[in-house]
Each structure stands twice: as C-alpha cells, then as structure tokens.
Design a protein around this nucleic acid. Structure first.
Lengths: 346, 1293
DNA sequence: AAATTCTCTACCGACAATATCACTAAGTATTCA
DNA sequence: CTCATACTTAGTGATATAAGTAATAGAGAATTG
C-alpha cells in the first residue's frame, strides 16, 4: 500500500508557513528522483535510513517513500500546523510497520539530533568511513524559510568539522533552499556573488543543482548559463510551488567530501579577504593583520596572483593563501576576531 | 556732526536702499499667536519665569534658517547651505579665493538665504582686502560684485567697516584716508555705531586713527568695552607706567579702581603679530604681580618656598601632570589664610593667574604633548638609550617626525589641486581620483598647522584604544570622526585666537591694570565672536580629513614585535605597523576596525594616560564663560552649545529663536550658578586612591590590572555543534569581561590623572543641557556626575562652618551614603553616632583598619565623609569646623513627585513625601504592600498563582518596576525586571517567567491605583504625542507622499519648559548614508537632513521627557535661588548638593521652587501650547462608512477625481485644504469669502458636531478621512494641593 | 481593505556597517550633417 | 557651428555579509498582494 499524496486543496488550509515554500507537484518530484538516481548511492535500500527535516506538507516524503521504501524514514518537524497535518497523514497508514514516523522536535535545535540518535535512539545510522558517501543514510531537508539559510550554513560547517549528523560519515543531503542562497553557494570564481559560502561549498562538498524554479516572466532561471548547462537541473514552474507567493527555490544535492583543510585559518583568511572582494590581493591582503601586505608580497612569488581580486580566486588560491597565512610568524590571533558592539553593563 | 542719510550718497552706483534689501524685519514674518493663547494667560506678566515669552517666540514659524513650517521643503537647502558655509570658511582661510568666489555664487542662488548673504560676502571681502595692495582694487571689486554678480544684495555696516579698515591700511596720505573714511562712514546703515561695533574688523589702531588722527568719530560712537582702551592711547600715548601699588604691596591689585586706570600703551610694538604666537606668550608682568601678591600673603615657610620656587613664567607649569612634581597647593593656602581680606586678595591673584593658565591650557595642549615627546626623546638620546624597547614617548616622537613630511606633502598637493596647478593629463586614473577627492577635503586640511594635525591624530588614536568593543583597537568610523572633530576644534580655537590677535594686535600689555582691561574687553569680544560662528564642519568633511591623517599615521607608525617561527617554534623579533585597518563582523554586518598592535597595547597599559586626556575639555581653572546665547558659554576658546543637540537642526532652530529673543535668561542664570561653584580635589582621598591604584589590585570599584586575556581551549573538531557554540560564547564573554575591566581601569586612570593635575587647584565645571534641559558638566571623565570614586575625590573649594545643624546634616549624609536613608533624620543621626568608633577608625586608617567604610553603599564618599566628620569631632567644638564636603539631598523618586503634583494624587503625593510626615515615606514599600493586598484578595478567591507569590513580595521585587514605570516601561520589560528578582526564588525559568507575567500585572495595577491622576496624565501625554507625531502639516512637502497615499509624518512633539526652554523631541528615522573616506566608507548621518518622524519613540519618550523637563526646570530654579542666597550649589538631576550648614536653607528654597513650578496648571498650559502650535494640522482618522459625512466625502472625492482626470490623492486633499485655510486667513475680504465658500473634505467634516462620535475602532469597516488635529481632553486632577509641600521635610532628604 | 509579518521591547548622558554593483541622471566629448 | 549621440561620471539604491533566532512573547506598526 502506498502513502497518500497530499492534495493541494488540503494544504491550502494550513495557515502558517513561516516563510517556507514547498514544491507540490508530484511529477516534479518524480522527475527529481529520476534525475538523482539514488539507487546508485544506496544499493541496499532495505538498509537506507532517511531523515526528513522540515518536511512540511510531506508530499515529497510520501513520493520518496513510495518509490524507495527505505528501512526507516523519520520526519522531524515541530511546527504545530504541520505536525497536525503529518499526524493525520500517518494515521492513514494502518500497517503494523509504518513507512514513516514523525519525530516532534525542532530541526533547528542541535539537541534534537543528539536526542534522535543517542538519547531516544529513534534513528541510529551506522558509522561509515570517509572513503565514500554514506550508503545507508540520507538527509532530506527543506530550508526555504527565513532561518533556512543560516541553518544551512551551519550544516555546511558541520560537514567541515565532521560533527552533527556528518559524524556518521559523508552523508548525502538533499536540501531545498531559496534560489538566491543556492546561487551564492554555487558561485564560481569571477562571479560577483562569490563568497565564503561558495568556497566552503566547494571545499567540503560536491554539490549539484538538482532542480530549480523557472522565472515567472522569462521562463529561464537566475543561474548562469554555464551552470545550467553543467547541472541540467529539473525545471519547475512557480505554479508548482506552495505558498504561491514568496521567493523562488532550488534543490541541491550535497555530497560531502573528504578533506584535510586547516579550518580555522581557512575561515579567517576567506572571511577577511572576501570583504574587499574586488581589491587586488596586494592591497586586500593587508586587511589580514598588521603588516599583511609586506609579508604576503614577500612570500607570494607569483605576481599574477597578487594582481587578482579575491572574488576571482580559485579554491586552491585560497588554500595557498591559508597555508602562507599559517606560516606567518606575526599572524594575528584569529580567535580574537570578534567585537562586542554593545557591552552592556547593568 | 552732520550725518547724511545714506540715500543722498551714491557709491559707485550702488544705489539700492538698505530698506529694499530688508523689506520686512524678521518679526514681520512672525505669525502672532491667536488672542486666546494670550487670553488664557492674560498676557505676559512679570511672573513669567520664561515660559510665556519663549513659547510665543517659538510658536511663530518663519524664524531662523530652519523654518518649522517649511522643514521638509528646506531640508535639502538647509543642508546645502551648511556645507557651503563651512566650505567657504575653509577656502577663505586657506586662501582659495577663486573657489571661495564660486561658492559665493552658489550661495547667492539659494534665495531663501539671500538675507544673510552679505555676511558671507563680507567674509570674502575681508580676505580679499587683506591681500589687496591698493584701495582701488577693493573698491572696484566691491562695485563689480554688488552691481553685476550679486545685484540683489546690498552692503551692510560690516562691509563698510571692512572698507574703512582697508582705507586706513592702504591710504598713502592723510587726505585720501580721511576722504575715504568719511565717505564710508556716511554710508552707514544704522549709524556710526553700527559700523564701529565691528570689532572683529577694525583694530584698536583703526579706532584711534578715526578718533584722533582723522577726528571723524566721537568717543561715544565706540563700543563700550573698547572705549577706555582706545581713549587711553590718546591720553597718554607715551605712558608706560607701572601701576601703583598700595603701601607695602601686600594687597596687590586691590587698591586700584578699574574704572580709572592708568594706561600704558606701547608704541614701540608696531609690527603686526601675524600669528597667534604673541598672544600665547606668558604674560610676564601679570605673573610678577601674581607672585608678588602671593608672597605678600601670610604663608607658611613651606608655602612661601613653593611660591618662590614656582616658575610663573613658563607655560610648562600649567598643570601638574607629572608624578612627583609639585605645584603650589593653592587650596592649602586658601584654607590656611586667616583673614577675609587676605583671602580676597588671594582669590583675585589666583584668578588672574588662572585666567592665563586657562588660556594656555585650552591652547597649548597639543604643543605640550609634542614637547613632552621630544623631551623624552632627547633625554633618551643623551643617555644613548634609543634601543629596541623604546619608551612610548620616544616612539611617538619618532612617528610624529615621520608623519609630518607626509602631511606637509599632502597639504601641498591639496593646495596645488585647489590652485589648478596640476596637469591632469600625465596622471594615472588613481591619482586623478585622489585629486578629485582632494578637492573635497583639501580646503579643510590646509587650515591647521600640520604639526598640530600630526599630534592630534596620534593622541586621538591612543585615546580610542580599546573602545567600541574592539579588543585591541577601535572602530574606524569613530576614529576618523574623532580625529576630524579634534582638528576642527583646533581650527576654531586658533581662529578665535587669530581674530583676537587682530583686534588687539597693537596693544602691548606692559601695565598690569591695562592688561586687566584688555582681558575684559577680550572676553567680551570672544563671546561675540563665538556667537557669530554658526558654522560646523559637515560630518563628511571630518571623516575625510580624519581618514587621510589616520592613513598616514598607519603608514609610518611601526613597532617592534615578537612572533613565533611556524617551523622551529622559536621566538623571532620583527617590526610591524602599529596600526592596521581591517574589518570584523558582527551579526553579519561588517564593521571597520583599526587594530592597535598588541605590543603597543601592552605598552599603553603600563603608561599613565597623561597624554591622551583631552585638554580642551578639562575642568576649568576659572569661572566658565557665562552663558549668553545658545552657543556662547562654557570654555573660553572651545565652542560648546547650550544644548547637546542630537544632530537635529530643528532643536537648534528653536533654541536660537528663543535665545535671540532673550527668552531663556533664567536658564542661563541657573546654569551659570552651577558653573560658578568652585571645587578642589580632596587630597587625602586622592592619596588613598592613588595608593590603591598603584598596587594594581582590584579594590572596590577599581578593577585590577589584568595583563593577558586567556581564552579557553578549543573543543575537538567533531564535538557537537552546541559544544562549539558554548566555547565561542565563553570566549566572547571572557573577552568582554577583559575589555570591560580594561576600560573600567582606563576610566579610573583618567579620573585619577585629572584629579592629580588639579590637586590643590581651584576649578569649575562648565555645564550644558541635554535636549530636555537637564544639566551636565561639559568635562568628561572627572566630574560630580561620575561614579562614587569621582564624587569621593571632590570637595567644595569654599569651606563653611558647620554650625550645629550642619553637623547634624553631615551625620545624616553619612547615614545616607551607607544606604540608611529611609528612616527619620533623628534615626539617621543616631545611626552615625552609634558608629563613631568605626568612623574614627575608617578615617584614620582606612586601609589597614576595620574598613567599616567599605560596607557603605557609596564607600568612597562615605570615607571622605568619615574623614570630615572625624576631623570635625576632634575639635573642641565640632560646630566650628570648616566643612568642604558637599551634602546631598535627593528627591525621593523625583519623577513620581512631579507626576503626583501634576495628577493631584493625594495618597501618591503622600508616598513620595510631598506631604508633611514625621517619617519619610517609601513608595516602593508601599507599592509592595498594595501588591500583597491584591494578591491576598486573589488568593482568597482561590487563585493559585497569587497564593504562591503572596509572601514573596518585597520592596526589592517591585522597586525597579515602580521606578521605570515613570519612564514608560512596557509590560514585557517589566516582566523581565521582575523575573530577574523572582529568579532568585524560583529556579525554573519558565515557571518564574509565568509568575512574573502575572505579578507584573498586579504591580502595574497597584502603581496605577496609587497614582491614578498621574497615570491618566501619563496616558494623556502619550496620546498627545502619538497624535502629534501622526499629524500632517498643511504645507507638507509633496515628497513626503512618495509611498502612495500614506505620507511621511514630519511633526515632532515640541513644548516649552516653565523656564522657557523649547524642547524638540529629536526622534526621527535615522537617515544614515555611506560616505567614502580614504580608509573605507563610513556610515554616518547627515546632521542637516530632516527625516520622517519615529512616531513610536516620540510617543514612548514624551511622558518621561516632559517630566524630566520639569525636574530640570526645578533644578535650575533651585540653583538660581541658591545662587542668589550665596550658597554653593551642585546638582545631579534630582540630587541637590550644598554645604552641610546650608542644607536647611537649600531645602526651603527647593520646596518653594517646586511649589512655584506646580502652582500653575502645567498640563493645561501644555494643552494650550499644543493647540496653538499645532493649529491647522490634520490627522487621519477612520470614520463610519455609513455616516452622512462619509458619503459626502466620498462623493466629493469622486467628483474631484473626475475633474482632475486622475486619482484624487491625499496630497491633493491636503493641498486643497491648505488653499482654503490660506484664503480664510487672508486679509482680503474677497479671498476670505472664497475661502468660506470652498468645500474640501476637511471642511465637510468641520460641519459635523462631534467627530469623535463617528470615529471607528478597528472592528467595523470605515473610511480614512482627514480631520483637524484634535488632542484629547485633559484628564481630571486629584485633590492634592502642592502648597502642602511647604512643610514636608522629607521631600528631598 | 485584510491579513500576515516585522519590530521592539524604560528615559537621558551615548558614542556611529560596509563593499560592491547595477542603474540613473547629468555632464562631456565626439562626431556628423 | 550646432545638434545629436556615445561615453563618462557622480550619485543612489539594493544586496550580501555571518551563521544559533542572545535566555524570553505580546502589542502595534508595516508590508503586501
């Protein structure tokens, strides 16, 4: 028996969406799963555990579940309206072994995950090595809401750190994000949206644009031609999205990489250099600390590199700078790199 | 003497009459407040302490450069004009005449400022004439300019003064000189005096020429202050007599009458002192006299030796900044003098000495710093000790020397750009851009001596170390603006000095009395000069020059640093820039940061902060310049304004208007009393603190010397994100604590340093006001508003015998400082008397004794009082003790006192001691009691929450909320406060929060019950503010309608305090913009922009601000009266201080003033003022759709819409209504009739009897309509009569 | 015109985002009839 | 020589930045379709 796929009518009754948007067109989801070829990553579907974060209307969950029949499929959500909706949905599943289960915790809270895997042991993924993508665990999430971008950035950091759910191995994530976030994450050198998160994405993950919304008027997307050609994403129309108003969204497939990057220095260097992203390195390096200009001009022999602007640098350029930075005898204390704007006293 | 009317003279064809230039006097524009406004008050009366006169002035639109009624329309122009003015000034002083002229053209085109254009032109002409070599050039220039370039402008008396000065200077013969001068004098607009009053143009020599050589004027034509000086030269041109001394010379100058002095005029000094150097030279003769006087006093041998050894003639003895070096202890002399006569002559001599020192202090500060650096450098060099670990000052001297040529070069470049002597062609794009920028900041950069700019830059940056939450450095934005501001301040001071030098350039004061005379004239002159200057540099210009200078310093300043080799882990020595510009993020926003290298920071921590103390803003050695106008008062060479304006041109405009009308004299007087209170440092306390400080250990509120910030170790990479988060938080907390501790220590350091400098000195605090009229000392760091430590360091200079009541009050004071202040006076006295042993112990051995004083609420002040009391009690008759300690009398919840008086709440009044009682009432306990009563009642009904809470309620739980209630604390805010208290009892946050929410409701209700009337008034004030800030002026600018039919509201709440001070709430949306500077862009607000109102803040701020404006008035009135009664008086808002012996008198006076203040129905008066000020303003209301008027309005809108062929907008509606009102107010009966005929949406509404009946609350659907602004009715007042206060001894206690 | 979402939360003294790019308006040079 | 057009430049506005929404929650204003 397959799970019912929620109709649009039902969903219209849900009041609060907190800025989240969901694709509610089964065929789009089918196309997406066609494209993803998940059975390649997860050859033993009967062992696959899926964590579905902010599932909302859970249409995609149902479709996914019907299609792959994973060993375990946990939906984590805490928003009252959706909890109600999902509970209703799950009640229809009268089998002894329910296909999906709801875990009523806030996906924003780190504690929810330790509870899930350690305390409550609801979903316990096996630990896998760094050699390959985890083949028994998949994370799906919708982070199209207001807090989504911030949360995703933290998850990215978790991939770098190998903590959170990523401590179980290189766990694939399918994440719905606002299109503008996805654009930033996938920005290439030279793109004016090239930013720290683009570098982090590039450094820690192999990320693909799986699907994206077509522009209302032009029918094209806001991603560059190159990128569209490279990723060939599934396109869906604004009408496939609920709520009807809001910002466009995209689906990313994130495959964590095995890396050995000096995280703190990398973080410091990228953060600071990308502030003056259009200033040539020979100038912008000075903002790394006292005497930065002198030091780097001395140690960077490649004049071409010095002429480049941070936004044009490749990941390896940044890694090179990070390395040099680490070797700098007079480098500043990177752990004091913050400011208390209002040091209130009362 | 025959005087032609000016019309009979043709000056090179300039023929327009002055009358045409000023067709109407300013007052002609003033709209007379309507009769009923006067009517209610039955016209200005002698009883008016300021309110009436002032409110009438400020009610009239059309004053000043900032017209309330046209605020929005003129905002752009107003900003423009300020920038142009400041640029014009800068260009003139830099000698960029062409550029200056083109600015004049721009100014000329701003029609609304045409009236003041001639002033700007005069400035230009002055400069032009200075450079001219013959008379004709100037005449021709003036003719051409006024005839052709600026035809709509006519000259004024100042123009003529310039011409006269020029004629005297350039004429080759007496005839030409005479002819020209006579001609010019005849052209006078308002008589000879009009011309001759321009003392900043004419020199003493000029006056003398006119008076004696040419005989064109009479003595009575001269400005009063100058008369004697000018005449003197005529009487005894050769005279160089020393002033006569009274026999024995011991009484110094006392024997001389100032009005008939014998003058000395030095004819030998003919050369013009171009720069201000001469004026700065120490006045040798004056100092000799001072010294002589001092030695004539009955001094101890030691004191005599001090005076003898003291070098009065060098500027280096300004203040005692160096440890170990000792100045004369003037206080000790003052204290030990025996007779009044001696004291008086001492006071005079000291004052005279201090006049000079003050002058030096305000001027020589930067030089002094530089000299110190150089001195240390030379010394180190002599020792051959220029090694690696340089002393700080040696380093600074080094930077200074490296920076100087760069600055000079930059100044040169700027001059080149300004003179167009740069060929653009050969320059790179970058250089071109830089030159473009130079055009902007160049004029400002060339104004101040490069040496000074370097010193200022270095000092400012050192001063800003660890500010703005940066751990080792500062915010860039703050740095660039601070440096810019400091440069501007320097420029202003120099300018003033230069002008002064110009006027008095011919005078050499080799006579003592003559010098005094000149000093007096000079002070007057200075006031005039300061009043005249209205120009301030735009924030943008400040930021730009600040950034230029800072970037140069960054470039040159280097320090030795130590690093670690990444491979070998060995220590490596190196060199790095001392400053580094970078960025840090805060919540995703970038903040520009100027980092200071750690090695320098360490060095700075070890230094005493002598160098960085802002010398311009120290306490003053002489009485502050009395307040005379909105921008004249306080320091002598440093300009300060009466009100600390929050970049609100509106505030300034209102202030100017009433200031010019002379309507706030009482405010000035009150402030002057505060400024005239003489202080000195409590030496014993200083020694104590200094000792404690030097140990480096934490002690009371002085934090210890922490050397290094130690962070916690990083958790393993794969630890849970929440662990990482905690780690980050912990580190931030550590850093925060560290930098907090450091800045606290730094602050204490400043205080001690300033105190050290003023040991034994007599000093004063100049005050100004915040926008609500509360007074604050101008000097930061060390003042009586500071913390316990600051206060403990200060005593009155004058001593007064305690007397028996004084002794009692001193005891009460000590009790109060211990926090034992809620009991009757007798009990407080008893408290002190029961601790006499402790007091003795504390006073005599504060550190090693029992340290009883440390238990006090305010330990430092308590210790000071212990010492005082102990010293008094040692006398046979303690009542004869001469006491210097200020004794405080604090209002018990002063805000509520005013509210209770306004609302007439009997019980409330009683609880805040407005009514006589034998015990002081404690309003907090009373409220707690009321709350408990409520809880018990609820608990009796079975309310479980009440049951839990009912025996947890203490005074402390409700105190903060009762207190902040006056400030309009919200329900949420109060809940937090109460939760903080309850959290000590209940562990679970959720639970305690729930309880707090519940309790807050009851606390609010109880306060409301107790102060029923007061709360109605609070609500009423809030409602008024809300409606006003959501009201629409008829002549609103169309731009305000940019977002559809919803206008930007522009009216702020404005009222007049009882003393006549107009108050404009400055809360508007912040209109900050990014401004590019050399280092980065900075985000600053344009001070001249007029932004939409922030209605929320207007509403929330008005009730407390109104009350504060009342307590401020009360304070100033009390100050005034205390001044009249010869009391030394100081105040911290609602805490009034005077000598112990004068407390009784002060208490009577302050109660009288409170009664006087509240005898008038202030609320009614406020409503009248509002009704008048906001007459014809509109508001948007929602009325019932079905009402008749509603239909009519809809129909009218439709009709007009059809006529127009487009949507009939709100703007149109307002425009129509404006037309109607204009017609109605017209003098022309025809127009009047038209107005009456006219039908607008507003007039339709006017036909309805009671609009309020139609108003719809949100539920039903209605339509939005414009209605005349109507403020709610005044709530009823309770029965309390303020007269009852007269005998309430615990009112302030 | 109604509903959702955004902001602010006690007053004053008091103290502050910034880099970059796209777009527009205005000014300037160039070129062509 | 003038006009028109391309090109420059100055000024304005929008957007991204980092990355726990600080512990908390309700009223009132602002936005939005």
């Amino acid at each position: 028996m397959s799970l019912a796929v929620t109709s649009l009518r039902e969903l219209a009754q849900i009041q609060h969406y907190y800025g989240f948007r969901y694709v509610l067109n089964p065929s789009v989801h089918e196309q997406i799963f066609d494209k993803l070829k998940l059975s390649k990553t997860y050859p033993k579907l009967d062992k696959l555990k899926v964590l579905d974060l902010y599932p909302g209307p859970a249409q995609h969950s149902a479709i996914f579940n019907n299609r792959y029949r994973p060993a375990q499929h946990v939906l984590m959500d805490m928003r009252p309206d959706f909890v109600k909706h999902i509970s209703g949905l799950l009640e229809q599943d009268k089998t002894d072994k329910p296909a999906m289960q709801l875990y009523r915790h806030d996906p924003y809270d780190w504690k929810s995950y330790t509870d899930l895997t350690d305390a409550d042991k609801i979903l316990v993924p096996p630990r896998k090595g760094p050699e390959a993508i985890h083949d028994e665990f998949l994370i799906m999430a919708n982070l199209t809401g207001m807090i989504g971008e911030g949360l995703f950035m933290q998850w990215l950091a978790c991939i770098g750190n190998r903590n959170w759910l990523q401590r179980f191995g290189r766990v694939k994530m399918l994440v719905w994000l606002q299109e503008c976030t996805a654009v930033k994450l996938l920005a290439k050198p030279g793109d004016h949206l090239r930013s720290k998160c683009s570098l982090v994405t590039e450094a820690f993950t192999d990320t693909k644009l799986v699907a994206t919304m077509s522009n209302k008027k032009t029918g094209t997307s806001n991603f560059s031609e190159d990128l569209m050609a490279e990723h060939q994403p599934v396109m869906f129309s604004p009408q496939d999205v609920w709520l009807p108003s809001g910002k466009p969204l995209s689906l990313l497939e994130i495959n964590p990489r095995d890396h050995r990057i000096d995280l703190d220095n990398f973080d410091y260097v990228t953060k600071h250099l990308l502030i003056l992203k259009s200033t040539p390195l020979y100038e912008s390096l000075d903002s790394l600390g006292h005497g930065g200009k002198e030091y780097f001009r001395q140690v960077i022999k490649d004049q071409n590199l010095l002429e480049k602007c941070p936004k044009n640098l490749t990941l390896s350029d940044f890694l090179y700078c990070t390395e040099l930075f680490d070797k700098w005898p007079f480098k500043p204390d990177i752990y004091l790199d913050f400011i208390d704007v209002f040091q209130d006293n009362d | 003497m025959l005087r032609c009317s000016r019309s009979c003279y043709r000056f090179h064809g300039v023929k327009r009459l002055i009358g045409q230039l000023r067709p109407l006097s300013q007052t002609a524009f003033l709209k007379k407040p309507s009769m009923n406004y006067y009517g209610l008050e039955s016209g200005p009366s002698n009883d008016d302490i300021g309110f009436l006169k002032s409110s009438v002035v400020s009610m009239a639109p059309g004053f000043g450069t900032f017209d309330n009624a046209q605020a929005a329309a003129q905002a752009g122009e107003s900003r423009n004009i300020m920038n142009l003015w400041s640029l014009l000034e800068a260009c003139l002083h830099s000698g960029y005449m062409d550029r200056a002229f083109s600015i004049l053209r721009s100014l000329y085109n701003l029609k609304s400022y045409r009236a003041s254009f001639i002033d700007d032109y005069n400035k230009y002409l002055t400069k032009f004439a200075e450079n001219a070599t013959d008379l004709k050039t100037v005449d021709k220039k003036l003719f051409e300019d006024l005839q052709k370039t600026f035809p709509a402008v006519d000259y004024n008396d100042k123009t003529l003064a310039i011409l006269i000065h020029n004629a005297i200077k350039l004429s080759d013969s007496k005839e030409t000189r005479s002819k020209h001068c006579e001609t010019y004098l005849r052209m006078a607009v308002s008589g000879y005096r009009g011309i001759l009053s321009n003392v900043e143009v004419l020199t003493i020599q000029d006056y003398r020429t006119l008076l004696h050589d040419l005989g064109l004027i009479e003595v009575h034509d001269l400005p009063a202050e100058l008369g004697p000086i000018v005449v003197a030269s005529g009487v005894s041109p050769e005279g160089t007599e020393e002033p006569k001394r009274t026999a024995g010379g011991t009484h110094g100058i006392t024997g001389m009458a100032k009005d008939s002095p014998e003058f000395a005029f030095d004819n030998e000094i003919k050369t013009v002192a171009k720069d201000a150097k001469e004026l700065l030279a120490v006045d040798t003769i004056g100092m000799k006299v001072v010294r002589h006087t001092l030695l004539g006093l009955s001094l101890t041998e030691e004191q005599r030796k001090q005076v003898k050894d003291f070098n009065f003639e060098t500027a280096s003895n300004l203040l005692n900044f160096e440890e170990g070096q000792s100045n004369i202890d003037f206080f000790e002399i003052h204290r030990t003098l025996k007779t009044d006569e001696e004291r008086e002559s001492f006071a005079k001599a000291l004052d005279e000495f201090n006049q000079d020192r003050q002058h030096q202090l305000e001027h020589r500060a930067t030089d002094a710093a530089k000299e110190r650096w150089r001195h240390d450098f030379e010394e180190a060099k002599a020792r051959g000790d220029l090694s690696i670990q340089k002393k700080l000052n040696v380093k600074l001297w080094d930077w200074f020397n490296q920076m100087l040529p760069l600055v000079k070069e930059e100044v040169k470049r700027c001059a080149e750009v300004a003179n167009h002597s740069v060929q653009d062609g050969s320059l790179s794009a970058k250089e071109k851009k830089q030159n473009k920028a130079r055009e902007d900041y160049g004029p400002y950069l060339t104004l101040v001596d490069p040496e000074k700019m370097c010193v200022i830059t270095i000092l400012e940056l050192l001063k800003l170390n660890s500010t703005g939450g940066v751990i080792e450095g500062m915010r860039t934005a703050r740095a660039v603006i601070s440096v810019g501001k400091a440069i501007e301040m320097e420029f202003r001071a120099e300018l003033l000095l230069k002008n002064e030098a110009h006027v008095f350039k011919d005078i050499k004061k080799n006579s003592h009395v003559f010098k005094l005379l000149v000093q007096r004239a000079r002070n007057t002159f200075r006031s005039m000069k300061i009043e005249e200057s209205k120009i301030l540099w735009p924030q943008e210009a400040r930021a730009k020059i600040g950034s230029i200078l800072i970037s140069m310093l960054i470039h040159v300043a280097r320090v030795r640093v130590e690093g670690t080799d990444p491979l070998t882990q060995e220590k490596i020595q190196g060199e790095a820039p001392a400053f580094s510009h970078g960025y840090q993020y805060h919540n995703g926003s970038k903040l520009g940061v100027l980092k200071i290298h750690r090695s320098l920071v360490h060095q700075l921590n070890g230094e005493r902060l002598v160098a960085a103390v802002q010398p311009q803003l120290l306490p003053m050695l002489v009485k502050p310049r009395p307040w005379k106008s909105w921008n004249s008062g306080g320091y002598y060479y440093t300009q300060s304004t009466l009100i600390r304006s929050k970049e609100s041109p509106e505030q300034v405009a209102y202030l100017k208007a009433v200031s010019d009308a002379g309507a706030i004299e009482n405010v000035y007087r009150g402030l002057n009393v505060l400024g005239e209170t003489a202080w000195t440092v409590n030496r014993k306390m200083f020694d104590m603190m200094s000792h404690v400080w030097n140990t480096g250990e934490p002690f009371l509120d002085i934090p210890g010397n922490q050397s290094k910030l130690v962070l916690t170790p990083q958790p393993p990479r794969d630890a849970d994100p929440s662990v990482h988060r905690q780690w980050k938080l912990k580190n931030k907390e550590l850093a925060n604590e560290f930098s907090g501790g450091r800045s606290a220590r730094c602050d204490a350091n400043y205080k001690l340093e300033i105190a050290r400098a003023f040991l034994g000195e007599k000093f004063y605090f100049p005050h100004n006001l915040d926008f609500r009229g509360r007074a604050y000392p101008l000097s930061p760091h060390f003042n009586h508003l500071g913390n316990d430590m600051s206060r403990g360091l200060m005593i009155f200079w004058n001593g007064k015998q305690l007397g028996s009541n004084g002794l009692k009050w001193l005891k009460v004071h000590l009790s109060n400082l211990f926090g034992f202040d809620k009991a009757p006076l007798e009990e407080r006295i008893a408290f002190t008397e029961s601790h006499l042993e402790d007091i003795k112990d504390s006073a005599e051995d504060p550190l090693n004794g029992k340290g009883w004083w440390k238990q006090a609420d305010k330990p430092w002040q308590a210790l000071a009082t212990c010492m005082e009391l102990n010293a008094a009690l040692k006398l046979d008759n303690p009542c004869e003790f001469i006491s210097h300690i200020p004794v405080h009398q604090d209002g018990t919840c002063n805000g509520l006192q005013h509210y209770a008086a306004l609302g007439g709440d009997v019980e409330g009044a009683k609880q805040v001691n407005l009514m006589p009682s034998d015990r002081p009432q404690d309003v907090y306990s009373h409220v707690a009691k009321l709350v408990v009563a409520r809880l018990e009642k609820a608990a009796a009904k079975g309310d479980e929450t009440a049951e839990i809470l009912k025996n947890k309620i203490t005074r402390k739980v409700v105190k903060q909320t009762v207190m902040t209630n006056v400030y309009g604390v919200t329900y949420i805010g109060a809940t937090h406060q109460i939760e903080k208290q309850l959290s000590t009892v209940f562990d679970d946050y959720k639970h305690s929060y729930e309880l707090s929410k519940y309790l807050t409701k009851h606390v609010f209700a109880s306060v409301r019950e107790l102060f029923e009337g007061a709360h109605l008034i609070q609500d009423w004030l809030g409602e008024c503010a809300k409606r006003i800030s959501k009201s629409i002026r008829l002549d609103i600018d169309e731009k305000a309608f940019r977002n559809g039919n919803k206008p930007d509201f522009m009216s702020s709440v404005i009222w007049t305090t009882p003393l006549g001070l107009p108050i404009v709430q400055p809360y508007r949306e912040n209109g900050k913009k990014q401004v590019a500077t050399n280092l980065q862009t900075v985000f600053i607000s344009d001070p001249f922009a007029v932004n939409p109102i922030n209605a929320r803040r207007q509403k929330a701020g008005f009730p407390p601000n109104f009350i504060h404006s009342l307590d401020a008035s009360h304070m100033l009135l009390s100050a005034l009266k205390c001044g009249e009664n010869k009391l030394d008086f100081a105040a911290v808002h609602d805490s009034y201080w005077t000598h112990a012996s004068d407390i009784d008198t002060m208490n009577v006076l302050l109660r009288e003033q409170f009664i006087k203040l509240h005898e008038v129905d202030l609320i009614e008066r406020l409503k009248n003022e509002f009704d008048e000020r906001y007459k014809n303003y509109l508001q948007i209301i929602k009325i019932d759709k079905k009402a008749d008027v509603a239909t009519k309005i809809v129909d009218l809108r439709k009709e007009l819409s059809q006529k127009l062929g487009r949507q009939f907008t709100l703007a149109d509606e307002i425009y129509m209504e404006k037309k109607r009102v204009q017609l109605l107010e017209s003098e022309d009966p025809v127009e009047n009739g038209e107005g009456a005929e006219m039908v607008t949406t507003v007039s339709l509404l006017g036909e309805v009897e009671d609009i309020a009946l139609l108003e719809k609350t949100s539920d039903a659907s209605g339509i939005m309509v414009l209605a005349p602004l109507k403020l709610p009715q005044i709530p009823p007042k309770g029965d309390f009569d303020v007269k009852e206060l007269e005998n309430s001894k615990y009112f302030f206690s």
